[in-house]
Design a protein around this nucleic acid. Structure first.
Length: 269
DNA sequence: AAGCATTAAGCTCGCATTCG
DNA sequence: CGAATGCGAGCTTAATGCTT
C-alpha cells in the first residue's frame, strides 16, 4: 500500500521518526525531541530549535554547554528506545519460539493460530492429567505432592508374605522427591521403632519416589505404632523441605524472575 | 477482478516492576 | 536511582475470504 514493509525497516535502524508503524498512539516521537533522529544532519533539540540555528545565534561556552547536554540526553533517549525496541523483538521471538515448541508437542496444530493452539494445548494437558490419574489409580506411582499415609489394613488386602501371623498390618506410604538421602533418612527414622517389616515396595517415576512398607505391629498396639511410623516418615519429609529452604534463592522466588533471553541456541545481538 | 471486512501478526509506546 | 525488562494497548500491514 505504498508504505515501507516491515522487513525493510532495518534500513531505518535508529530512525524512528521516518517510519509510520505504531504512530497513532497520540504521542509523536518528537515528544522526546527525537524527530528525524539518526537520519538528519541537523537534529532537533528538545526545545524545538535546530543546532544550526542556535549555533549561529550564540557561540559562547555558556550557551554551548546546555546544548551539548540536551544532545546527549536525546542521544541517550534514542539509545534507550532502540534498546527497548530490540528487547521487545527478542521477547516476541521468545514467545513465538515457545509456541512453536508447543506446536511440535501437540498433534494436528500446524494450521492453528496462536489462540487456538493454546486452547488445544490446554485440552491436551487436561487429557494427559486424566490419563495420569487413571494410571495412578491402578499402579503405585509416586504422588505429585509430598505425602505420608499410614493405615491399618487386613492381611488379605495387603497380600503379606506367608511368614505373617494373620493380624492387622500397618501400611505406611511416603511420596517425595527422589533425593539421594531419602532411603538413608527413612532407615534412620524408622530404626528406633524396631519394626517388623513384612513387605516393602519402591516405585520411582520422573524424579519422584514412593516407598511403601507393610509392618506387623506388636499385639494390641496397632494405633500407637501407626502414629509412631507416621511421625517418623513425616520427619523425613520435614527434613527434605527444610533443606529446600536453603537451596538457591532463585528456586523460591515468586516474584517475576528475569530469564536470560533464549535459553535455546539463538542469540541475538 | 475489484472492493470490503475480518483476522493474524508485528511494531512501538508508556507505564510498572525488578535489578544492580 | 537509573537501567533493564515485562506487559498491555493501540496502531499498521498483509493475508484471506466473501460479495458484487
Amino acid at each position: 500500500m505504498g508504505s515501507v514493509p516491515f522487513s525493510d525497516t532495518e534500513l531505518f535502524d535508529g530512525f524512528y521518526g521516518g517510519f509510520g508503524g505504531g504512530g497513532g498512539c497520540g504521542h509523536g516521537y518528537d515528544e522526546y525531541g527525537l524527530g528525524q533522529l539518526g537520519a538528519s544532519t541537523s537534529p532537533v533539540l528538545a526545545d524545538g530549535g535546530t543546532e544550526e540555528a542556535d549555533g549561529a545565534a550564540a557561540s559562547t561556552e555558556l550557551l554551548e554547554a546546555p546544548k551539548r547536554k540536551g544532545d546527549r540526553r536525546s542521544e541517550k533517549a534514542a539509545m534507550a528506545l532502540k534498546s527497548h525496541s530490540e528487547a521487545e523483538r527478542r521477547r516476541r521471538e521468545r514467545i513465538n519460539a515457545h509456541l512453536a515448541t508447543l506446536r511440535t508437542m501437540v498433534p494436528c496444530t500446524d494450521k492453528m493460530d496462536k489462540a487456538a493452539l493454546l486452547a488445544e494445548v490446554i485440552t491436551h494437558v487436561k487429557k494427559l492429567k486424566t490419563s495420569a490419574a487413571r494410571i495412578r489409580s491402578h499402579c503405585a506411582v509416586p504422588a505429585d505432592a509430598d505425602d505420608v499415609a499410614v493405615e491399618l489394613v487386613s492381611p488379605d488386602a495387603a497380600s503379606p508374605p506367608p511368614s505373617h501371623g494373620g493380624g492387622l498390618l500397618v501400611k505406611a506410604t511416603l511420596s517425595c522427591d527422589d533425593g539421594a538421602d531419602v532411603f538413608a533418612d527413612v532407615r534412620s527414622a524408622l530404626r528406633p521403632l524396631r519394626l517388623r517389616v513384612v513387605g516393602s515396595e519402591v516405585t520411582t517415576l520422573g524424579g519422584r519416589v514412593r516407598l511403601t512398607f507393610l509392618i506387623s505391629p506388636p499385639p494390641g498396639d496397632d494405633a500407637g505404632l501407626a502414629e509412631s511410623v507416621r511421625q517418623a516418615l513425616q520427619s523425613v519429609l520435614d527434613k527434605a523441605n527444610s533443606a529446600l529452604e536453603f537451596a538457591p534463592r532463585a528456586s523460591l522466588l515468586n516474584k517475576r524472575r528475569r530469564v536470560s533471553t533464549f535459553e535455546s541456541s539463538s542469540s541475538s545481538s
